[in-house]
């Protein structure tokens, strides 16, 4: 039981972050707070991928002469490459989302969901 916990405790943090992000997206009425929830959700997924790339006794994926090309001595480079692109894409997504929020504010003079729905019903 303790062995299992020590091997998997990182996933507990990832699940907690996923739940916090989902909570922010579901319950908050403010659009910017919803975006913060989305960012926390994305960060949890990044951490999950990076955590999956670790190996015990391995170092960063830059080949040095002393270690040679032994796969057991370097962590998995593939999740790093995937997440590197995903982080920049998430920044671009947040940029587009903020642009939409700004447009909504200019049109309805509010970023609160209830106010916007009331204004749209008029």
């Amino acid at each position: 039981m303790l062995e299992t916990f020590l091997g998997r405790y990182v996933y507990a943090f990832v699940v907690a972050l996923l739940a916090i992000g989902l909570y922010g997206m579901l319950t908050k009425r403010n659009l910017v707070k919803k975006l913060i929830g989305m960012t926390i959700f994305q960060t949890a997924i990044f951490l999950f991928f990076i955590e999956g790339s670790t190996k015990m006794g391995a170092t960063v994926p830059v080949i040095v002469a002393e270690l040679g090309s032994d796969p057991a001595r370097y962590v998995n480079p593939l999740p790093h490459a995937l997440i590197l692109t995903a982080i920049v894409v998430s920044v671009a997504t947040i940029g587009v989302a903020l642009a939409l929020v700004l447009k909504i504010y200019r049109t309805y003079q509010s970023i609160d969901e209830d106010d916007i729905l009331k204004e749209m019903g008029k």
Binding site: A92, G95, V96, L98, A99, L102, Y105, R106
Partner: peptide
Amino acid sequence: VIFDSLAGGDSDA
């Protein structure tokens, strides 16, 4: 470009 278009508005922000 994203920063410029987000910061560009001077109407009522």
